[in-house]
Each structure stands twice: as structure tokens, then as C-alpha cells.
Design a protein around this nucleic acid. Structure first.
Length: 195
DNA sequence: ACATCGATCTACT
DNA sequence: GTAGATCGATGTA
């Protein structure tokens, strides 16, 4: 019996080029140690946001909202959008640069009952198949902005799972730099937000 | 101070 | 397929 080794992704992981991080995050597991129990899911869809990219929050300089993007890599950048949803990102690149990876979809693993409660639905396929949905399912909001993903109540773990094939596609919901193929997802995964 | 709009989701036709 | 919810961040004055 082979024992699976799980370890938190180290800080250096997030210092790789942002597009590489976006691809490498596919297959990793996001854990939230919630007061009421552990909620986790496997990352199946991501998008890269670079510092010279007009669609990126950091592209017009540091503000109160985006300052965590310019901080330490491996921390959580959470922002509030459309008056009711949150989106979860990992900060990438050296301090001061301002890049990140948006996590767009998860495959639910632990804490299904809590997720269903948080989302107000029982449909498995609808729990975490979008950036707003997964934040609601995991109970993530602005209070989690800045948490250290290498060791806190919110961590990203490598459990050794290998991704068979990565699809590259245009990013979703943006008008600027819409031609860039900086969305990545696991081919065939049912929890991807859009095929 | 005010107007605009967004890295979304749901409900309804 | 399309509209409406809902509000903070941002830009303009």
C-alpha cells in the first residue's frame, strides 16, 4: 500500500512565472479549515493575471483593494464583485510586481454538507463550478484576504495527483485583453465553469 | 460628491 | 438568451 504524501505548496511554487503557476495549480487541493469543519476541493480551472495586462486589477497601480497582489507570493487575494460575490486568487511573483492566479472552479472533496448549506443547493455540479460559487461554498470573503496559503486556515496542498491534459482558452468575463489564452482547465472535468 | 461598472450568478422567458 | 440583483472601488469634477 503506497502512502500518499500531502504537503503544502511552498513559497517558491508561487515564484514561478504566473502562467506556469496557473497551470501547475490544476490538480492541487484547496483546504479551508472552517470553524464548523474542513471544506476542500481540487482545483480544476484557473486564469492568469499578469502585471502588464490591462484586465489585471494591479495594472493601474496599487490601491487599497489590490495591495495584497503586490505583497508576498503565496497569499490569498480575495475581492468583492458585482455587489454580492467574491473571487479567490493566489498572489504570484516577487513582492512589488502584482500578479496572481484566479481560481475559477473546484471539484468538491471534503465538507459536502457544509458546501450545500453555504450554497443553498444540493446539486453537486452547481456547488463550486465558478469563481463566485466556490467562494460561497468554502465560506470565503474579504476576511480571508491576505491569508498565507503556505500555512493558515486556508492552504493549498499537493497530494500527488497528476493532471492528464490541460486545455488553454480565452479568459471569461473580461473586455480588455480578451484575446489572451490565459484560462486553463482539466480536459473533461465536469466541474469546469465553461467548456 | 456623484456616476459608472465589474475576473458573476440566478431566475425567468 | 437576456435581464436583474446589488455595492464597493474607481474615475471624473
Amino acid at each position: 500500500m503506497v502512502e500518499r504524501i500531502e504537503h503544502n505548496l511552498p513559497r517558491e511554487f508561487y515564484l514561478q512565472p504566473t502562467i506556469e503557476v496557473a497551470k501547475a495549480l490544476l490538480g492541487k487541493v484547496l483546504f479551508h479549515r472552517h470553524e464548523r469543519g474542513i471544506i476542500s476541493g481540487r482545483i480544476v480551472e484557473t486564469e492568469a493575471y499578469l502585471c502588464d495586462d490591462p484586465a489585471c486589477h494591479s495594472s493601474r497601480g496599487m490601491t487599497a483593494r489590490n495591495e495584497t497582489m503586490f505583497g508576498e507570493p503565496g497569499r490569498a487575494y480575495v475581492y468583492f464583485i458585482y455587489g454580492m460575490y467574491h473571487c479567490f486568487n493566489t498572489v504570484t511573483g516577487p513582492v512589488g510586481v502584482g500578479e496572481g492566479v484566479l481560481v475559477r472552479a473546484l471539484e468538491p472533496l471534503d465538507g459536502l454538507e457544509l458546501m450545500k448549506e453555504n450554497r443553498g443547493t444540493h446539486a453537486l455540479a452547481n456547488l463550486t463550478s465558478g469563481p463566485g460559487k466556490l467562494c460561497q461554498a468554502l465560506g470565503l470573503d474579504l476576511l480571508h484576504k491576505g491569508l498565507d496559503l503556505t500555512g493558515s486556515e486556508l492552504v493549498i496542498v499537493d497530494d500527488g495527483m497528476q493532471v492528464a491534459e490541460i486545455v488553454e482558452a480565452p479568459r471569461v468575463g473580461i473586455t480588455l485583453a480578451a484575446d489572451k489564452q490565459w484560462r486553463f482547465y482539466i480536459r473533461g472535468n465536469r466541474f469546469v465553469s465553461r467548456k
